[in-house]
Write a protein that binds this DNA or RNA. Structure first.
Length: 576
DNA sequence: GCCGTTTTCGGCCCGACTGTTTTCAGTCG
Protein backbone atom coordinates (compact mmCIF):
# COMPACT_ATOMS: atom_id res chain seq x y z
CA UNK A 1 0.00 0.00 0.00
CA UNK A 2 1.24 3.48 -0.89
CA UNK A 3 2.15 5.97 1.84
CA UNK A 4 -0.38 8.48 0.53
CA UNK A 5 -3.17 5.93 0.93
CA UNK A 6 -2.20 5.12 4.53
CA UNK A 7 -1.95 8.83 5.32
CA UNK A 8 -5.43 9.33 3.89
CA UNK A 9 -6.85 6.71 6.28
CA UNK A 10 -5.17 8.51 9.19
CA UNK A 11 -6.44 11.95 8.18
CA UNK A 12 -9.93 10.64 7.60
CA UNK A 13 -10.02 8.97 11.00
CA UNK A 14 -8.65 12.09 12.70
CA UNK A 15 -11.41 14.19 11.14
CA UNK A 16 -14.06 11.73 12.26
CA UNK A 17 -12.57 11.65 15.77
CA UNK A 18 -12.81 15.41 15.85
CA UNK A 19 -16.52 15.26 15.00
CA UNK A 20 -16.90 12.61 17.68
CA UNK A 21 -15.33 15.04 20.15
CA UNK A 22 -12.41 12.83 21.08
CA UNK A 23 -9.25 13.95 22.83
CA UNK A 24 -7.65 16.66 20.70
CA UNK A 25 -4.10 15.58 21.47
CA UNK A 26 -4.75 12.06 20.29
CA UNK A 27 -6.26 13.49 17.12
CA UNK A 28 -3.15 15.58 16.63
CA UNK A 29 -1.03 12.46 16.94
CA UNK A 30 -2.92 10.80 14.10
CA UNK A 31 -2.43 13.88 11.93
CA UNK A 32 1.26 14.11 12.80
CA UNK A 33 1.61 10.43 12.01
CA UNK A 34 -0.11 10.96 8.65
CA UNK A 35 2.26 13.78 7.72
CA UNK A 36 5.25 11.69 8.73
CA UNK A 37 4.10 8.72 6.64
CA UNK A 38 3.20 10.87 3.67
CA UNK A 39 6.64 12.38 3.47
CA UNK A 40 8.59 9.25 4.32
CA UNK A 41 10.87 8.47 1.38
CA UNK A 42 10.31 4.71 1.49
CA UNK A 43 7.09 2.74 1.45
CA UNK A 44 5.98 2.35 5.06
CA UNK A 45 3.94 -0.79 4.33
CA UNK A 46 7.17 -2.49 3.24
CA UNK A 47 8.77 -1.57 6.56
CA UNK A 48 5.80 -3.01 8.45
CA UNK A 49 6.13 -6.31 6.62
CA UNK A 50 9.85 -6.55 7.23
CA UNK A 51 10.40 -8.02 10.70
CA UNK A 52 13.89 -6.54 10.92
CA UNK A 53 12.55 -3.00 10.54
CA UNK A 54 10.90 -0.81 13.15
CA UNK A 55 8.39 1.85 12.10
CA UNK A 56 8.67 3.60 15.47
CA UNK A 57 12.01 4.94 14.25
CA UNK A 58 9.89 7.35 12.18
CA UNK A 59 9.39 10.54 14.18
CA UNK A 60 5.71 10.75 15.13
CA UNK A 61 5.03 6.99 15.02
CA UNK A 62 4.98 5.31 18.42
CA UNK A 63 3.74 2.01 19.71
CA UNK A 64 0.06 2.80 19.20
CA UNK A 65 0.31 3.92 15.60
CA UNK A 66 2.71 1.08 14.82
CA UNK A 67 -0.05 -1.35 15.82
CA UNK A 68 -2.51 0.59 13.69
CA UNK A 69 -0.12 0.37 10.72
CA UNK A 70 0.17 -3.36 11.15
CA UNK A 71 -3.59 -3.66 11.10
CA UNK A 72 -3.86 -1.49 7.98
CA UNK A 73 -1.32 -3.60 6.12
CA UNK A 74 -3.11 -6.79 7.15
CA UNK A 75 -6.68 -5.83 6.36
CA UNK A 76 -6.83 -2.34 4.88
CA UNK A 77 -8.44 -0.63 7.86
CA UNK A 78 -8.22 -0.48 11.63
CA UNK A 79 -10.51 -0.79 14.65
CA UNK A 80 -10.81 2.87 15.55
CA UNK A 81 -11.59 3.86 11.97
CA UNK A 82 -14.27 1.18 11.67
CA UNK A 83 -15.77 2.35 14.93
CA UNK A 84 -15.85 5.97 13.75
CA UNK A 85 -17.38 5.04 10.41
CA UNK A 86 -20.10 3.17 12.28
CA UNK A 87 -20.95 6.37 14.15
CA UNK A 88 -20.70 8.92 11.35
CA UNK A 89 -21.06 8.34 7.62
CA UNK A 90 -17.89 9.19 5.66
CA UNK A 91 -19.78 11.82 3.67
CA UNK A 92 -19.90 13.92 6.87
CA UNK A 93 -16.20 14.65 6.29
CA UNK A 94 -17.07 16.73 3.28
CA UNK A 95 -18.99 19.09 5.57
CA UNK A 96 -15.69 20.14 7.17
CA UNK A 97 -14.89 21.93 3.93
CA UNK A 98 -17.85 24.27 4.37
CA UNK A 99 -16.70 27.54 5.89
CA UNK A 100 -18.38 28.42 9.15
CA UNK A 101 -18.89 24.81 10.14
CA UNK A 102 -16.43 22.92 12.26
CA UNK A 103 -16.49 19.53 13.91
CA UNK A 104 -18.72 20.66 16.81
CA UNK A 105 -21.40 22.05 14.55
CA UNK A 106 -21.27 19.02 12.29
CA UNK A 107 -21.76 16.70 15.26
CA UNK A 108 -24.71 18.82 16.38
CA UNK A 109 -26.26 18.80 12.91
CA UNK A 110 -25.92 15.05 12.73
CA UNK A 111 -27.43 14.51 16.18
CA UNK A 112 -30.45 16.73 15.55
CA UNK A 113 -31.18 16.29 11.88
CA UNK A 114 -29.04 13.37 10.68
CA UNK A 115 -27.28 15.80 8.30
CA UNK A 116 -24.45 13.92 6.61
CA UNK A 117 -24.16 15.33 3.10
CA UNK A 118 -23.83 18.76 1.53
CA UNK A 119 -27.31 18.31 0.03
CA UNK A 120 -28.79 17.57 3.49
CA UNK A 121 -27.07 20.64 4.85
CA UNK A 122 -28.37 22.85 2.10
CA UNK A 123 -31.95 21.64 2.70
CA UNK A 124 -31.73 22.27 6.46
CA UNK A 125 -30.46 25.81 5.83
CA UNK A 126 -33.16 26.55 3.26
CA UNK A 127 -35.83 25.31 5.64
CA UNK A 128 -34.50 27.69 8.31
CA UNK A 129 -33.75 24.85 10.69
CA UNK A 130 -30.05 25.52 11.24
CA UNK A 131 -30.85 28.66 13.20
CA UNK A 132 -32.82 26.61 15.73
CA UNK A 133 -29.69 24.89 17.03
CA UNK A 134 -27.78 26.30 20.03
CA UNK A 135 -25.39 29.16 19.22
CA UNK A 136 -26.45 29.20 15.58
CA UNK A 137 -28.45 31.86 13.83
CA UNK A 138 -29.70 33.28 10.60
CA UNK A 139 -26.37 34.81 9.62
CA UNK A 140 -24.63 31.48 9.89
CA UNK A 141 -27.35 29.94 7.74
CA UNK A 142 -26.68 32.48 4.99
CA UNK A 143 -22.94 32.07 5.31
CA UNK A 144 -23.21 28.30 5.02
CA UNK A 145 -25.41 28.57 1.93
CA UNK A 146 -22.93 30.90 0.27
CA UNK A 147 -20.09 28.60 1.23
CA UNK A 148 -21.89 25.58 -0.24
CA UNK A 149 -22.27 27.45 -3.50
CA UNK A 150 -18.63 28.39 -3.64
CA UNK A 151 -17.54 24.89 -2.65
CA UNK A 152 -19.56 23.37 -5.46
CA UNK A 153 -18.26 25.84 -7.99
CA UNK A 154 -14.57 25.45 -7.60
CA UNK A 155 -13.75 23.06 -4.78
CA UNK A 156 -12.08 26.31 -3.72
CA UNK A 157 -8.54 25.78 -4.96
CA UNK A 158 -6.67 27.57 -7.71
CA UNK A 159 -3.67 27.02 -9.92
CA UNK A 160 -0.60 28.82 -8.67
CA UNK A 161 -0.14 31.05 -11.72
CA UNK A 162 -3.65 32.44 -11.30
CA UNK A 163 -3.13 33.19 -7.60
CA UNK A 164 0.29 34.64 -8.39
CA UNK A 165 -1.17 36.96 -11.03
CA UNK A 166 -3.98 38.20 -8.77
CA UNK A 167 -1.50 38.76 -5.94
CA UNK A 168 0.89 40.79 -8.12
CA UNK A 169 -1.93 42.85 -9.54
CA UNK A 170 -3.33 43.64 -6.08
CA UNK A 171 0.10 44.27 -4.59
CA UNK A 172 0.76 46.92 -7.24
CA UNK A 173 -2.68 48.45 -6.69
CA UNK A 174 -2.34 48.59 -2.89
CA UNK A 175 1.20 49.92 -3.04
CA UNK A 176 -0.22 53.15 -4.49
CA UNK A 177 -2.00 53.91 -1.21
CA UNK A 178 -0.37 56.87 0.57
CA UNK A 179 1.22 55.69 3.82
CA UNK A 180 1.95 52.24 2.45
CA UNK A 181 5.53 51.16 2.06
CA UNK A 182 5.46 47.46 1.29
CA UNK A 183 2.93 44.88 0.14
CA UNK A 184 4.07 41.27 0.28
CA UNK A 185 2.30 37.99 -0.41
CA UNK A 186 2.62 35.41 2.37
CA UNK A 187 0.84 32.07 2.81
CA UNK A 188 1.00 29.09 0.50
CA UNK A 189 1.79 31.32 -2.46
CA UNK A 190 5.05 32.41 -0.83
CA UNK A 191 5.80 28.77 -0.05
CA UNK A 192 5.30 27.93 -3.72
CA UNK A 193 2.65 25.31 -3.11
CA UNK A 194 1.21 23.59 -6.17
CA UNK A 195 -2.30 24.90 -5.74
CA UNK A 196 -3.51 27.81 -3.66
CA UNK A 197 -6.60 28.08 -1.50
CA UNK A 198 -6.42 31.78 -0.71
CA UNK A 199 -3.96 34.63 -0.94
CA UNK A 200 -2.55 36.56 2.04
CA UNK A 201 -1.23 40.04 1.39
CA UNK A 202 0.66 41.82 4.16
CA UNK A 203 0.78 45.60 4.07
CA UNK A 204 3.01 47.85 6.13
CA UNK A 205 4.27 51.40 6.20
CA UNK A 206 3.97 54.55 8.32
CA UNK A 207 0.15 54.62 7.97
CA UNK A 208 -1.03 51.48 6.20
CA UNK A 209 -4.66 51.30 7.40
CA UNK A 210 -6.19 53.13 4.38
CA UNK A 211 -5.03 50.19 2.24
CA UNK A 212 -8.01 48.25 3.60
CA UNK A 213 -10.42 50.85 2.26
CA UNK A 214 -8.64 50.87 -1.05
CA UNK A 215 -8.78 47.07 -1.18
CA UNK A 216 -12.54 47.10 -0.55
CA UNK A 217 -12.87 49.48 -3.49
CA UNK A 218 -10.80 47.30 -5.86
CA UNK A 219 -12.90 47.00 -9.04
CA UNK A 220 -12.65 43.23 -9.25
CA UNK A 221 -13.86 42.59 -5.69
CA UNK A 222 -16.83 40.28 -5.94
CA UNK A 223 -17.84 40.08 -2.29
CA UNK A 224 -16.47 41.42 0.97
CA UNK A 225 -16.25 38.43 3.29
CA UNK A 226 -15.03 40.08 6.50
CA UNK A 227 -13.99 43.52 7.58
CA UNK A 228 -12.08 44.40 10.74
CA UNK A 229 -9.61 47.02 11.88
CA UNK A 230 -6.59 45.01 10.81
CA UNK A 231 -7.86 42.75 8.10
CA UNK A 232 -10.25 42.69 5.19
CA UNK A 233 -11.15 39.54 3.27
CA UNK A 234 -12.79 39.54 -0.11
CA UNK A 235 -13.33 37.20 -3.00
CA UNK A 236 -11.88 38.45 -6.28
CA UNK A 237 -13.14 38.07 -9.83
CA UNK A 238 -15.79 35.67 -11.04
CA UNK A 239 -13.46 32.85 -10.00
CA UNK A 240 -13.91 33.96 -6.40
CA UNK A 241 -10.31 33.63 -5.20
CA UNK A 242 -10.27 34.69 -1.55
CA UNK A 243 -7.73 37.37 -0.70
CA UNK A 244 -6.96 38.47 2.88
CA UNK A 245 -5.28 41.84 3.25
CA UNK A 246 -3.70 42.58 6.62
CA UNK A 247 -2.17 45.85 7.73
CA UNK A 248 0.71 45.68 10.15
CA UNK A 249 3.01 47.85 12.13
CA UNK A 250 6.57 47.87 10.85
CA UNK A 251 7.86 46.64 14.20
CA UNK A 252 6.07 43.32 13.76
CA UNK A 253 6.35 42.93 9.99
CA UNK A 254 8.89 40.11 10.21
CA UNK A 255 6.92 38.13 12.77
CA UNK A 256 3.75 38.61 10.74
CA UNK A 257 5.52 37.45 7.56
CA UNK A 258 6.77 34.42 9.43
CA UNK A 259 3.39 33.71 10.96
CA UNK A 260 1.27 34.14 7.85
CA UNK A 261 3.69 32.32 5.57
CA UNK A 262 3.19 29.13 7.57
CA UNK A 263 2.80 26.31 7.10
CA UNK A 264 0.71 25.55 10.13
CA UNK A 265 2.88 22.55 10.96
CA UNK A 266 6.06 24.61 10.64
CA UNK A 267 4.66 27.32 12.90
CA UNK A 268 3.51 24.88 15.55
CA UNK A 269 6.97 23.33 15.69
CA UNK A 270 8.60 26.74 15.78
CA UNK A 271 6.44 27.88 18.71
CA UNK A 272 7.24 24.73 20.59
CA UNK A 273 10.91 25.45 20.08
CA UNK A 274 10.40 29.04 21.23
CA UNK A 275 8.79 27.85 24.45
CA UNK A 276 11.65 25.46 25.17
CA UNK A 277 14.01 28.41 24.87
CA UNK A 278 11.90 30.59 27.17
CA UNK A 279 10.18 32.63 24.46
CA UNK A 280 6.69 32.87 23.14
CA UNK A 281 6.13 33.51 19.44
CA UNK A 282 3.10 35.10 17.83
CA UNK A 283 2.40 37.24 14.78
CA UNK A 284 3.37 40.26 16.89
CA UNK A 285 6.86 39.15 17.73
CA UNK A 286 9.10 36.96 19.77
CA UNK A 287 8.74 37.69 23.50
CA UNK A 288 10.46 36.52 26.64
CA UNK A 289 8.11 34.41 28.73
CA UNK A 290 9.32 35.82 32.07
CA UNK A 291 8.96 39.59 31.53
CA UNK A 292 7.07 39.73 28.22
CA UNK A 293 9.82 41.84 26.70
CA UNK A 294 10.07 41.76 22.92
CA UNK A 295 13.29 40.35 21.53
CA UNK A 296 12.52 40.22 17.80
CA UNK A 297 9.81 41.03 15.26
CA UNK A 298 10.97 43.41 12.55
CA UNK A 299 12.51 40.80 10.31
CA UNK A 300 12.14 37.06 9.84
CA UNK A 301 15.89 36.66 10.00
CA UNK A 302 16.16 37.96 13.56
CA UNK A 303 13.34 35.70 14.73
CA UNK A 304 14.95 32.59 13.32
CA UNK A 305 18.28 33.79 14.62
CA UNK A 306 17.03 34.24 18.20
CA UNK A 307 15.63 30.73 18.02
CA UNK A 308 19.07 29.44 17.11
CA UNK A 309 18.14 28.79 13.51
CA UNK A 310 19.37 29.83 10.12
CA UNK A 311 16.69 31.63 8.09
CA UNK A 312 14.57 28.97 6.42
CA UNK A 313 13.47 29.49 2.81
CA UNK A 314 9.63 29.58 2.66
CA UNK A 315 9.43 26.61 0.28
CA UNK A 316 10.88 24.35 3.00
CA UNK A 317 8.52 25.40 5.77
CA UNK A 318 6.42 22.27 6.09
CA UNK A 319 7.96 20.78 9.25
CA UNK A 320 9.56 18.04 7.22
CA UNK A 321 12.97 18.29 8.87
CA UNK A 322 13.86 21.86 7.91
CA UNK A 323 13.89 23.11 11.51
CA UNK A 324 16.33 20.43 12.60
CA UNK A 325 18.46 21.14 9.53
CA UNK A 326 18.43 24.88 10.28
CA UNK A 327 19.48 24.21 13.88
CA UNK A 328 22.40 22.06 12.77
CA UNK A 329 23.49 24.39 9.99
CA UNK A 330 22.78 21.87 7.27
CA UNK A 331 20.00 23.49 5.28
CA UNK A 332 20.45 22.48 1.66
CA UNK A 333 21.55 24.88 -1.04
CA UNK A 334 18.38 25.21 -3.10
CA UNK A 335 18.28 25.70 -6.85
CA UNK A 336 17.47 29.27 -7.95
CA UNK A 337 15.72 30.52 -11.06
CA UNK A 338 18.83 32.47 -12.12
CA UNK A 339 20.79 29.21 -12.20
CA UNK A 340 18.62 27.68 -14.92
CA UNK A 341 20.54 27.96 -18.17
CA UNK A 342 18.15 26.42 -20.65
CA UNK A 343 14.60 25.30 -21.28
CA UNK A 344 14.32 21.84 -22.75
CA UNK A 345 10.71 21.27 -23.64
CA UNK A 346 8.82 23.47 -26.08
CA UNK A 347 6.56 23.21 -29.09
CA UNK A 348 6.32 25.16 -32.34
CA UNK A 349 3.78 25.79 -35.09
CA UNK A 350 4.97 22.54 -36.66
CA UNK A 351 2.70 20.75 -34.14
CA UNK A 352 0.52 22.43 -31.52
CA UNK A 353 2.71 25.43 -30.58
CA UNK A 354 1.94 28.99 -31.62
CA UNK A 355 5.41 30.28 -32.60
CA UNK A 356 8.24 29.33 -34.94
CA UNK A 357 11.62 27.88 -34.01
CA UNK A 358 13.25 31.32 -34.41
CA UNK A 359 10.60 33.02 -32.29
CA UNK A 360 11.01 30.47 -29.51
CA UNK A 361 14.78 30.94 -29.68
CA UNK A 362 14.34 34.70 -29.50
CA UNK A 363 12.17 34.28 -26.39
CA UNK A 364 14.70 31.94 -24.78
CA UNK A 365 17.42 34.51 -25.41
CA UNK A 366 15.24 37.20 -23.83
CA UNK A 367 14.81 34.92 -20.80
CA UNK A 368 18.60 34.94 -20.46
CA UNK A 369 19.17 31.30 -21.40
CA UNK A 370 22.23 29.80 -23.04
CA UNK A 371 20.32 27.01 -24.71
CA UNK A 372 16.93 25.58 -25.56
CA UNK A 373 15.53 22.43 -27.08
CA UNK A 374 12.78 22.30 -29.67
CA UNK A 375 10.68 19.25 -28.83
CA UNK A 376 7.53 18.91 -30.89
CA UNK A 377 5.08 16.03 -30.62
CA UNK A 378 5.39 12.72 -32.44
CA UNK A 379 2.88 11.20 -34.84
CA UNK A 380 0.75 9.29 -32.31
CA UNK A 381 -0.57 12.63 -31.17
CA UNK A 382 -2.47 13.16 -34.42
CA UNK A 383 -4.69 15.74 -32.77
CA UNK A 384 -1.60 17.92 -32.33
CA UNK A 385 -0.36 17.16 -35.86
CA UNK A 386 2.53 15.15 -34.45
CA UNK A 387 5.66 14.57 -36.52
CA UNK A 388 6.45 11.37 -38.39
CA UNK A 389 10.07 10.45 -39.15
CA UNK A 390 10.20 12.38 -42.41
CA UNK A 391 8.84 15.62 -41.00
CA UNK A 392 11.00 15.23 -37.90
CA UNK A 393 14.20 14.96 -39.90
CA UNK A 394 13.17 17.96 -41.99
CA UNK A 395 12.63 19.88 -38.76
CA UNK A 396 16.06 18.85 -37.48
CA UNK A 397 17.60 20.33 -40.63
CA UNK A 398 15.56 23.49 -40.11
CA UNK A 399 16.68 23.75 -36.47
CA UNK A 400 20.34 23.44 -37.53
CA UNK A 401 19.79 26.18 -40.11
CA UNK A 402 18.04 28.57 -37.67
CA UNK A 403 20.76 27.91 -35.09
CA UNK A 404 23.17 29.69 -37.42
CA UNK A 405 21.27 32.92 -36.77
CA UNK A 406 21.74 32.59 -33.00
CA UNK A 407 25.49 32.32 -32.42
CA UNK A 408 25.06 33.09 -28.72
CA UNK A 409 22.55 30.26 -28.19
CA UNK A 410 22.73 26.50 -28.48
CA UNK A 411 19.54 25.15 -30.03
CA UNK A 412 19.17 21.44 -29.42
CA UNK A 413 17.10 19.42 -31.84
CA UNK A 414 14.68 17.27 -29.92
CA UNK A 415 11.30 15.64 -29.83
CA UNK A 416 8.62 14.81 -27.31
CA UNK A 417 8.08 11.26 -28.41
CA UNK A 418 4.95 9.38 -27.36
CA UNK A 419 5.35 6.25 -25.33
CA UNK A 420 2.94 3.86 -27.00
CA UNK A 421 0.55 1.58 -25.19
CA UNK A 422 3.13 -1.21 -24.95
CA UNK A 423 6.07 1.04 -24.02
CA UNK A 424 7.52 1.22 -27.55
CA UNK A 425 8.64 4.61 -28.86
CA UNK A 426 6.39 6.25 -31.42
CA UNK A 427 9.37 6.97 -33.71
CA UNK A 428 12.01 4.69 -35.22
CA UNK A 429 15.33 4.39 -33.41
CA UNK A 430 17.34 5.62 -36.39
CA UNK A 431 15.29 8.84 -36.43
CA UNK A 432 15.70 9.31 -32.66
CA UNK A 433 19.42 8.80 -33.11
CA UNK A 434 19.57 12.03 -35.15
CA UNK A 435 18.40 14.11 -32.20
CA UNK A 436 20.23 15.82 -29.37
CA UNK A 437 17.42 15.41 -26.83
CA UNK A 438 14.59 12.89 -26.64
CA UNK A 439 11.76 13.38 -24.16
CA UNK A 440 9.49 10.37 -23.77
CA UNK A 441 5.94 11.05 -22.60
CA UNK A 442 2.66 9.23 -22.07
CA UNK A 443 -0.36 10.92 -23.63
CA UNK A 444 -2.77 8.06 -24.23
CA UNK A 445 -4.16 4.93 -22.60
CA UNK A 446 -3.96 6.57 -19.21
CA UNK A 447 -6.24 4.01 -17.59
CA UNK A 448 -3.91 1.05 -17.73
CA UNK A 449 -3.46 -1.19 -14.73
CA UNK A 450 -0.57 0.00 -12.55
CA UNK A 451 1.53 -3.06 -13.37
CA UNK A 452 1.06 -2.52 -17.08
CA UNK A 453 1.88 1.18 -16.80
CA UNK A 454 5.01 0.35 -14.82
CA UNK A 455 6.20 -2.03 -17.53
CA UNK A 456 5.37 0.54 -20.18
CA UNK A 457 7.48 3.22 -18.48
CA UNK A 458 10.32 0.79 -17.75
CA UNK A 459 10.48 -0.19 -21.40
CA UNK A 460 10.60 3.47 -22.42
CA UNK A 461 13.44 4.14 -20.00
CA UNK A 462 15.37 1.21 -21.43
CA UNK A 463 15.27 2.67 -24.93
CA UNK A 464 18.85 3.91 -25.40
CA UNK A 465 17.77 7.14 -27.12
CA UNK A 466 15.49 8.39 -24.36
CA UNK A 467 17.02 11.16 -22.23
CA UNK A 468 14.10 12.57 -20.27
CA UNK A 469 10.79 11.23 -18.97
CA UNK A 470 8.25 14.01 -19.67
CA UNK A 471 5.51 14.93 -17.15
CA UNK A 472 6.02 11.55 -15.50
CA UNK A 473 2.66 11.03 -13.76
CA UNK A 474 0.40 12.71 -16.31
CA UNK A 475 -1.58 14.53 -13.67
CA UNK A 476 -3.52 17.72 -14.37
CA UNK A 477 -3.87 19.73 -11.18
CA UNK A 478 -7.45 20.15 -9.94
CA UNK A 479 -8.66 18.07 -12.91
CA UNK A 480 -7.07 14.68 -13.17
CA UNK A 481 -4.93 12.49 -10.93
CA UNK A 482 -1.77 10.98 -12.30
CA UNK A 483 -1.87 7.42 -13.61
CA UNK A 484 -0.78 4.98 -10.91
CA UNK A 485 2.40 2.93 -11.31
CA UNK A 486 5.23 1.58 -9.19
CA UNK A 487 7.07 4.84 -8.76
CA UNK A 488 10.06 3.50 -6.86
CA UNK A 489 10.83 0.89 -9.49
CA UNK A 490 10.57 3.43 -12.27
CA UNK A 491 12.70 5.95 -10.37
CA UNK A 492 15.37 3.36 -9.67
CA UNK A 493 15.43 2.35 -13.34
CA UNK A 494 15.61 5.98 -14.44
CA UNK A 495 18.59 6.57 -12.15
CA UNK A 496 20.31 3.42 -13.39
CA UNK A 497 19.89 4.36 -17.05
CA UNK A 498 20.64 8.09 -16.53
CA UNK A 499 17.20 9.06 -17.77
CA UNK A 500 16.28 12.35 -16.14
CA UNK A 501 12.84 13.07 -14.72
CA UNK A 502 11.19 16.18 -16.02
CA UNK A 503 9.83 18.72 -13.59
CA UNK A 504 7.17 20.06 -15.92
CA UNK A 505 6.78 23.71 -14.88
CA UNK A 506 3.39 24.21 -16.48
CA UNK A 507 1.13 25.35 -13.60
CA UNK A 508 -1.45 22.84 -14.76
CA UNK A 509 0.97 19.99 -14.25
CA UNK A 510 3.91 20.67 -11.91
CA UNK A 511 4.81 17.08 -12.57
CA UNK A 512 6.73 15.57 -10.81
CA UNK A 513 5.46 17.23 -7.65
CA UNK A 514 7.63 17.77 -4.60
CA UNK A 515 6.57 14.59 -2.82
CA UNK A 516 7.60 12.27 -5.63
CA UNK A 517 10.68 14.36 -6.34
CA UNK A 518 12.00 13.58 -2.89
CA UNK A 519 11.35 9.88 -3.43
CA UNK A 520 13.01 10.01 -6.84
CA UNK A 521 16.08 11.70 -5.47
CA UNK A 522 16.31 9.06 -2.77
CA UNK A 523 16.60 6.57 -5.65
CA UNK A 524 19.45 8.57 -7.15
CA UNK A 525 17.53 10.19 -9.97
CA UNK A 526 18.35 13.57 -11.51
CA UNK A 527 16.04 16.16 -13.04
CA UNK A 528 15.45 18.82 -15.65
CA UNK A 529 13.03 21.69 -15.17
CA UNK A 530 11.20 22.59 -18.39
CA UNK A 531 8.16 24.65 -19.25
CA UNK A 532 6.52 22.59 -22.01
CA UNK A 533 5.86 25.97 -23.65
CA UNK A 534 3.29 26.16 -26.42
CA UNK A 535 3.54 29.96 -26.44
CA UNK A 536 6.47 32.33 -25.82
CA UNK A 537 4.85 33.63 -22.67
CA UNK A 538 4.86 30.11 -21.21
CA UNK A 539 8.63 30.38 -20.79
CA UNK A 540 7.84 32.54 -17.75
CA UNK A 541 6.41 29.47 -16.01
CA UNK A 542 9.94 28.28 -15.26
CA UNK A 543 9.72 29.85 -11.83
CA UNK A 544 6.90 27.53 -10.78
CA UNK A 545 9.02 24.54 -11.69
CA UNK A 546 11.89 25.97 -9.66
CA UNK A 547 9.58 26.51 -6.68
CA UNK A 548 8.47 22.89 -6.92
CA UNK A 549 12.08 21.71 -7.03
CA UNK A 550 12.93 23.86 -4.03
CA UNK A 551 10.00 22.42 -2.11
CA UNK A 552 11.62 19.03 -2.69
CA UNK A 553 14.95 20.32 -1.26
CA UNK A 554 16.65 20.05 -4.67
CA UNK A 555 19.85 21.97 -5.30
CA UNK A 556 21.59 23.03 -8.49
CA UNK A 557 23.51 19.75 -8.57
CA UNK A 558 20.23 17.82 -8.88
CA UNK A 559 19.03 19.89 -11.83
CA UNK A 560 20.80 19.05 -15.06
CA UNK A 561 19.79 22.23 -16.87
CA UNK A 562 21.79 24.35 -14.46
CA UNK A 563 24.81 23.11 -16.42
CA UNK A 564 26.28 25.08 -19.31
CA UNK A 565 25.51 23.82 -22.83
CA UNK A 566 28.52 21.52 -23.01
CA UNK A 567 27.94 20.22 -19.50
CA UNK A 568 24.34 19.56 -20.33
CA UNK A 569 25.25 17.69 -23.49
CA UNK A 570 27.62 15.59 -21.44
CA UNK A 571 24.90 14.75 -18.91
CA UNK A 572 22.71 13.21 -21.61
CA UNK A 573 23.10 9.50 -22.02
CA UNK A 574 25.03 8.08 -24.90
CA UNK A 575 23.44 5.06 -26.54
CA UNK A 576 25.76 2.16 -25.90
C1' DG B 1 -1.23 8.96 21.01
C1' DC B 2 3.56 11.00 21.16
C1' DC B 3 7.61 12.35 23.53
C1' DG B 4 11.89 13.42 26.83
C1' DT B 5 18.94 18.77 27.89
C1' DT B 6 13.37 19.68 34.11
C1' DT B 7 10.13 14.68 32.46
C1' DT B 8 8.46 7.38 31.46
C1' DC B 9 4.02 11.33 33.55
C1' DG B 10 2.13 15.25 32.25
C1' DG B 11 2.40 18.11 29.21
C1' DC B 12 1.08 19.03 24.13
C1' DC B 13 0.79 26.70 19.88
C1' DC B 14 -1.46 31.33 19.56
C1' DG B 15 -4.65 35.13 18.75
C1' DA B 16 -8.54 37.42 16.07
C1' DC B 17 -13.01 37.38 14.53
C1' DT B 18 -17.91 36.06 14.33
C1' DG B 19 -22.25 35.42 15.89
C1' DT B 20 -24.57 34.56 19.47
C1' DT B 21 -24.92 36.05 23.71
C1' DT B 22 -24.34 39.24 28.04
C1' DT B 23 -19.40 36.33 28.96
C1' DC B 24 -17.86 33.06 25.31
C1' DA B 25 -17.69 28.79 22.25
C1' DG B 26 -16.54 27.72 17.82
C1' DT B 27 -14.09 28.59 13.72
C1' DC B 28 -10.22 30.06 11.15
C1' DG B 29 -5.66 30.69 9.82
Amino acid sequence: MENAEIARLFYETADLMEIAGEDSFRIRSYRNGATAIESHPERVSDMVQDASRDVTTIQGIGKGLAAVLKEIVERGSFARRDEMLARYPPTALELLKIQGLGPKSIALLYQHYRVSTIDDLERICREGKLRLLPRMGEKLEQKVLRSIESYRRSASRFLINFADRVASELAAYLAETPGVERVTPAGSLRRGKETIGDVDLLVTGPAPAPALERFAAFPRVKEILARGGNKTSASIGHEGLQVDVRVLDRSSYGSAMQYFTGSKDHNVALRQRALRLGFTLSEYGLFRVDDQSKVAGETEEEIYDRLGLAWIPPELRENLGEIEAAAEGRLPELVRLDQIRGDLHMHTVETDGRYSIAEMAEAARAAGYQYLAITDHSKALAMANGLDETRLLAQVAEIRRVAGDFPDLTIFAGVECDIRQDGAMDLADDALAQLDVVIASVHSYLNQEPAQMTDRLLRAIENPHVDILGHPTGRLLLRRDGYPFDFERVAAAAARHSVHFEINASPERLDLGSQLLRMARAQGARFVISTDAHHIKHLDNMKYGVWTARRAWLGPADIVNTLDPEGFRGALRKPS
